[in-house]
């Protein structure tokens, strides 16, 4: 009877179990240990060591459909940049909804800074929001050709809400070509990372924060050096947050030790929040993975049991 049931578990029981194992650990807010991935280490090292006074481009091509992963990516990235006072230009080429979503993240982080008593990160002075550009292929090709021609017509708002030209901003005033940007970071839930690699990898340094679905296809580009670093999925969020909290290859006990590249170092973030969404979701994630492994093992064990039982019957027949 139990064997029969285990061989054919109702899908709704599995769904219910998944909800249970993801909900219960959410209440547990404990700092977890981590083994960070090489490509996450490379990402954090690269972003942490961006030269002072330079502007970073962030192409944010995700919407709330992948908030569980990309929101953590963008929050962590912006916290690093804000802590290091790095200026950035943020825009989207992947989805018309994306600017609405990254603006929400920016708003949340501004509130957070206010609550923590940190100085405000001012639009126009510290960052520019360039909105959406349709047609990823054409836009990225044009950014590679002449970035000023693409961005100059975008009028943006300064801290007082007044319309200004994007290149009046101190964020973009020193950017003559995309090669002047030390890092072009794509936060994506789609294949816009491929489009960026095709059109920009020969012109600037690219890094990527992507969902677990896109991650495997980004890894070959990391291996070939076309991507300086990659943060993949929820594990990527957890890795970056962990590195923000502990630093990389430092003398401290907590610091992450990257055995393959012990000469690359990055300081931890000491201003504002570090551990957030990645750490908070990870326990639930582990429970869900263990449930999946358990169901696969159960399915296979019961298949073998059923096969073993049906064999003698078959012989008799």
């Amino acid at each position: 009877m139990i064997k029969e049931k285990l061989l054919n578990i109702d899908r709704r029981i599995l769904y219910g179990l998944l909800i249970l194992v993801t909900v219960i650990p959410l209440r547990c807010d404990q700092k977890l240990n981590n083994i960070t991935d090489d490509y996450s280490n490379a990402f954090y090292e690269a972003v942490s060591n961006i030269p002072e006074g330079k502007t970073v481009f962030i192409e944010s091509d995700w919407t709330t459909s992948t908030r569980g992963e990309n929101s953590g990516h963008l929050e962590a990235l912006l916290r690093i940049l804000m802590a290091k006072k790095t200026k950035f230009a943020i825009f989207s080429v992947g989805d018309a909804q994306a600017p609405g979503v990254f603006r929400g993240v920016l708003l949340r982080l501004m509130e957070e800074r206010k609550t923590l008593g940190l100085p405000a990160y001012q639009p126009f002075e510290d960052y520019v929001d360039l909105g959406y550009f349709a047609n990823a292929e054409g836009t990225l090709q044009a950014i590679g050709g002449d970035v000023r021609k693409v961005f100059e017509k975008k009028s943006i708002r300064d801290a007082e809400g007044k319309q200004r030209s994007a290149f009046d901003s101190p964020v973009l005033s020193n950017v003559k070509s995309v090669g002047d940007v030390p890092m072009y970071i794509v936060v994506t839930a789609s294949n816009t990372i491929d489009r960026a690699i095709e059109r920009l990898s020969a012109k600037t340094t690219l890094a990527c924060m992507c969902t677990g679905v896109i991650g495997p296809s980004a890894l070959p580009y990391f291996q070939s050096g076309q991507l300086k670093g990659v943060a993949i999925g929820l594990k990527g969020v957890f890795d970056i947050e962990y590195l923000m909290a502990n630093g990389l290859n430092l003398e401290t006990k907590e610091s992450v030790k990257w055995s393959k590249q012990p000469d690359k170092t990055a300081q931890p973030i000491t201003v504002g929040k570090t551990l957030d969404r990645g750490n908070r979701y990870f326990l639930s994630f582990m429970c869900a993975i263990l449930l999946l492994i358990a169901t696969v093992v159960t399915g296979n064990v019961m298949m073998f049991v059923a096969r073993a039982q049906s064999k003698p019957q078959g012989d008799e027949a």
């Binding site: 998944l18 909800i19 993801t22 909900v23 959410l26 209440r27 459909s65 992948t66 908030r67 569980g68 992963e69 929101s71 969902t211 677990g212 679905v213 991650g215 495997p216 993949i232 999925g233 929820l234 594990k235 908070r280 979701y281 639930s284 994630f285 869900a288 993975i289 999946l292």
Partner: peptide, 22 residues
């Protein structure tokens, strides 16, 4: 390996939904 990575992506979305509700 892609399957493992995809599972991570989808579970992260369920967790986020649960976080939103609870």
């Amino acid at each position: 390996a892609i399957f493992g990575s995809t599972v991570m992506a989808r579970f992260a979305l369920v967790i986020d939904r649960m976080y939103y509700i609870w």
